[in-house]
Design a binder for these strands. Structure first.
Lengths: 232, 232
DNA sequence: TTCAAATAATAGTAATACTATCATTTAAAA
DNA sequence: TTTTAAATGATAGTATTACTATTATTTGAA
């Protein structure tokens, strides 16, 4: 039996907290499976309700629309990764070691972690990879950002940026590197699977491990001190 | 009067080549303005037709649906950037100089370049930044990739990867770096504007210039030879 | 001038994205 | 144990979206 953790989410995202009821947890559970299967564009509340043996109207009592639901899932993921990073780096002093753990969490948190019963972290990670950016690439970003809907993402990136600065306090782009590591992790897992000519990561090999190596290589090279040999 | 160039696009993307007729070019022109204004999700062919003073049915003769139209625009952009890079690096020997030009093209091709009459490159770049990834983050990627719909993107990345390898033939991730530079350019321009806590780029300052500096810094540091001082 | 192709005008259908209403179940309070 | 409120289910309905079909009109090329 796993310990149930509850990830804190901005309460403006939902109409009624799905983590607090059986039906709500069912919505999360089945929406993850369904979005992963059919993709966000073809996903809708009618299909979800059918799949769950519930009704459209019931789902609408929890989320205003499917965008809010996606935002919830993505936000949950950000919060969950933050949580994992926190507990896994807790007793570690060396910030370089910490960054390695962070990168590992970005790439494969889902592979090797204890589960909240109603959330399939593996499938959720698939959703993040394929649909994640859609949660904040909309005309409502500014409005939603104003309401704090992306706080979990910002918090995650801030945590990472702090570790980056602990490694190299002179580094000029801690936030940009942090968010880029997160985005690159998802991008290259996606590219390896669907558009392999856009990456060097090979689907056949241990994809996750390869992405992890790459991100480690990138970040430690970027965070090394300035003395290096220019090529010419 | 500007010289009209015609960007080559996979002919499976459209039903009828919009570059070949007045109505077609009008569809491109107005769709760019409209998508930029209202966002891709709320954009539809009815609104477009209204805006243009044409009819929905006419638009449907050019594109199967709005996804195909987005793919067309994004694909056009990829082709256009490739073209710019080609002509701007033509007489340049030094691959480091070439990469600088490439990065400049990623960040601000739209700012300082001659125009195809019916395409507002500036607005198109906005669309790429906000909606670009939606063109290939769908359940149909594999099918569409099989038909060659993303060839322009791959070609662009291959060009860049070649330059990267010319700078440092031992570099292990030329394709990944190439696509990451492109994606980071768009991501950080977007973050600076909408989610500033996710980047170090400041909207108030010369955003484009700052992103360019950052990407130059990242790439040249990554492509330097291995001798560097580890921090500890 | 005539013919074919492109476009406009109009109408219609199926699916989507909701909203409203009321009945039923459940769970908690009195 | 009864009463009540809240949550859910069942059903229905509306407005919008995403198309398709049909026919009339315009345009341009032979």
């Amino acid at each position: 039996m796993s310990v149930e953790i509850k990830i804190a989410l901005n309460d403006g995202i939902y109409l009624k907290d799905p983590q607090d009821s059986v039906l709500g947890r069912n919505i999360l559970k089945h929406s993850i499976v369904l979005i992963d299967n059919v993709g966000f564009e073809t996903f809708n509340f009618k299909k979800l309700a059918q799949e769950m043996g519930s009704t459209e109207a019931s789902v609408y009592r929890y989320f205003e629309n499917k965008h809010a639901l996606l935002l919830y899932l993505v936000s949950w993921y950000w919060g969950w990764v933050s949580y994992l990073i926190k507990i896994n780096t807790m007793n570690i002093e060396d910030p370089k070691k910490k960054l390695e753990i962070i990168i590992h969490s970005f790439v494969s948190a889902s592979v090797d972690n204890p589960s909240t019963e109603y959330i399939d972290e593996n499938k959720l990670h698939s959703i993040i990879i394929a649909e994640g950016t859609k949660a904040y690439r909309t005309k409502d970003v500014d409005k939603e950002n104003g309401k704090g809907f992306f706080k979990n993402y910002k918090q995650l990136i801030t945590t990472v940026a702090d570790v980056i600065l602990a490694i190299n306090p002179k580094f000029k782009y801690p936030y940009a590197l942090a968010s880029s590591l997160f985005e690159m992790s998802n991008d290259h897992l996606y590219f390896a699977k669907h558009l392999p000519r856009l990456t060097d990561i090979k689907e056949e090999k241990n994809k996750h491990c390869e992405v992890e190596n790459m991100l480690n290589y990138f970040s430690f090279k970027l965070l090394s001190y300035e003395i290096f040999i220019q090529v010419d």
